[in-house]
Nucleic acid binder design. Structure first.
Lengths: 114, 114
DNA sequence: CGGTTGCGTAAGCCTATGCTTACCGTAAGC
DNA sequence: GCTTACGGTAAGCATAGGCTTACGCAACCG
């Protein structure tokens, strides 16, 4: 084999992690967290074009981090607590493991000193 | 202006979010969470080459998510609780905001029904 | 109703990045 | 001291992905 990508089943790369990996997208995420906003309002606060914001919002939505609701002419985006909670739970789990491992390591060091 | 990237100050893109965005890197993260491991051991559990693992570990280390310690011939990598905690704290904050906004939205809907 | 406003989508460019193979130190083992 | 094991780094390639402009459509406004 000369070359290999990690064998993605199709093209689904769109979890919360890659969604928040991009700085612009994280800025959008934070703006929306501040208060629910229509697309144009978000774009006004950022140095990128409005279509770029639309594209980012699609990614955030696919990742389950935001939801939108049409209000007349506009779409209001707001955070989706469930999506945020899912990532929080993941980190929580590994944080506990990290702490446990850390404690073990500390004890081993203590024994080395004896 | 014909084209513009988001104006990164230099090339520092390496926060915990982009570190965990890659599926292979997340797998490495989880293997190390399970228990501290040398590089080769991690590579044995993944469908990518050892140098690829080395590169991923460098990213995770730069992001502050893992630390390493040389033991004789090998380097043992383990999770860094501080790095995980930082991301956890970030999500926590927005989770609270999301919940608050959600509550407000629910109340507004309730009023609409009246 | 014609004009305006708000937003999603398409096409296309350029950079970032994940992978591979090749190579080079350094520590262990005989 | 050689040989082997471990792992970091370099070079190079192919795809992913973030941005822009152009466009289309629906809702609102006079």
């Amino acid at each position: 084999m000369a070359y290999a990508q990690p064998a993605h089943k199709s093209s689904n790369h769109h979890d919360g992690w890659s969604a928040l990996a991009d700085p612009t997208r994280r800025a959008i995420f934070e703006l929306i967290a501040e208060r629910p906003r229509p697309v144009g309002d978000v774009a006004d606060h950022l140095p990128v074009s409005r279509p770029a914001v639309s594209q980012h919002l699609k990614v955030l939505k696919d990742a389950g981090l935001v939801v939108d609701r049409p209000i007349g002419n506009r779409r209001i985006y707001r955070l989706n607590p469930d999506g945020v909670e899912a990532m929080r739970a993941y980190l929580d789990r590994f944080w506990n493991q990290a702490l446990a491992a850390f404690k073990v390591a500390a004890e081993q060091r203590a024994q080395e000193v004896e």
